[in-house]
């Protein structure tokens, strides 16, 4: 172990903040690779979004999670993962769901480890524990899940991104949003 690298249990205060000393991206140049293979499918933004502020302590905050790993309840109809242009819809997943209630239906990323423990991609049980421990206030009733593979940024924005953001604004009553790609 180098001086800059921590074991998992060490506190953040001991962390070396120098990013040059941290691990590198395991698949470097991913943006260029994807853009070369699927021209026009990757978005680039020039403007930063002004920061919204958390206006209460974490211990009182309600958290919503959005994932592109394609997780859903075993009882829900799987999303279409074979369509060559992607699937433009989403699912609500109860924040009270446990590992055994959930399944990842996706082709485009390795989820064999998440199949063993859903929290590798979708840490729903860890969030539940943080609420029980009083670290977080509560969880929104539903979390949101969709398929990350899509070839049409405009259609994605209109039919997935905006509807999910609208749903969060309308029904999640969240103070903070955690977004986890796959």
């Amino acid at each position: 172990m180098t001086t800059s690298e921590q074991s998992v249990g060490e506190s953040r205060a001991e962390a070396a903040a120098d990013p040059r000393q941290t691990g590198r991206q395991l698949r470097p140049g991913l943006w260029h690779t994807i853009n070369e293979r699927y021209p026009g499918s990757m978005i680039t933004k020039d403007d930063a979004v002004p920061l919204a502020r958390l206006n209460k302590p974490l211990a009182e905050a309600r958290v919503v999670m959005v994932s592109s790993c394609g997780v859903h309840l075993r009882t829900q109809r799987p999303m279409d993962v074979t369509h060559p242009l992607g699937y433009f819809g989403f699912r609500r997943v109860p924040s009270s769901a446990r590992h055994d209630d959930l399944i990842i239906h996706q082709l485009k990323f390795p989820h064999d480890d998440a199949d063993l423990d859903i929290n590798v991609s979708f840490p729903v049980e860890r969030l539940q524990e943080m609420v029980e421990a009083g670290e977080l206030g509560s969880l929104s009733e539903s979390f949101y899940s969709f398929i990350g593979y899509n070839m049409d940024p405009e259609k994605f924005e209109a039919e997935v991104a905006t509807p999910i953001a609208d749903a969060i604004g309308r029904e999640a009553h969240a103070d903070l949003a955690l977004l986890v790609p796959a």
Partner: peptide
Amino acid sequence: MGLIQRQVEARGIPTVSITVARD
């Protein structure tokens, strides 16, 4: 996912994402 994050933040809810693709 970046589009969703930007949209949620723009609605006044602070956001954070986890990434394995920094670029």
